[in-house]
Amino acid sequence: MFEIVNKKELNPTVTMMDIKAPLVAKKAQAGQFIILRVDEDGERIPLTVAGYDREEGTVKIIFQIVGGTTERLNHKQKGDFIQDFVGPLGKETDVEGLKKVCIVGGGVGCAIALPVAQRLHKMGCEVHSIIGFRNKDLLILEDEFKEASDKLTIMTDDGSYGEKGLVTEPLKEALENGEKYDEVITIGPLIMMKFVVATTKPFDQKTTVSMNPIMIDGTGMCGGCRLTVGGETKFACVDGPDFDGFLVDFDEAMTRSVMYKDFERKEHEDACNLFKGVE
């Protein structure tokens, strides 16, 4: 069992937790993920590491409430325990030698992009961050990004905060103005990453994407997380989660990501009703 030592609501649909897991905290690096089960008989879900404290032995996770499992997780409080927590899994984000990077984050993906930005910032890399949200209420981690970035652009779909528009707009503008990055690293919804890649490709701007497909074991055993990358089948759990954005088949990944949509919707409703009944 793993204790929730801290819980904070970042916005109405996104929650942050610090989980006591010393073995995972000792090894975790930006870009890696963990798999958890909320309770006995729960499903296994992957979440990317949003931070860690090696001394305290805690790992930070930030999740959006999208289905039954995240709903159940969100009902746990500080001091409660979750059943299983395993990791760190996958490869860490390769930051070696990077001098100037543009981080493009969308929604809850910003939580995963932040540790990458922090790591780059700490090693003296110039970090330009572009983070986007649907509206002001959904904005998360603004201060943290400010601190980790040399330049920060905040976008909202409706213009309720920062600039109005999509994250691809300031990115395109920068590239058109002759900005050259060692790498663009993008983490967010599949559709956003697809369009970030579509934006960078004409400029031949190297772009890394972080994939978070459906998984079970997270160690390569099931193959449920497979993606087509450069015409080859890759497993996100052991070969990724980071891949060369130019090579990923996003349309296929998007189709696969909604494989269990109906089941998920029902699970989410069940979880909500269940807890309504308890109150």
């Binding site: 073995l23 090894k27 990791g87 997270g218």
Partner: peptide
């Protein structure tokens, strides 16, 4: 349980 040798 929950320990991946080679990772954890």
């Amino acid at each position: 349980t929950n320990v991946v040798i080679g990772k954890t």
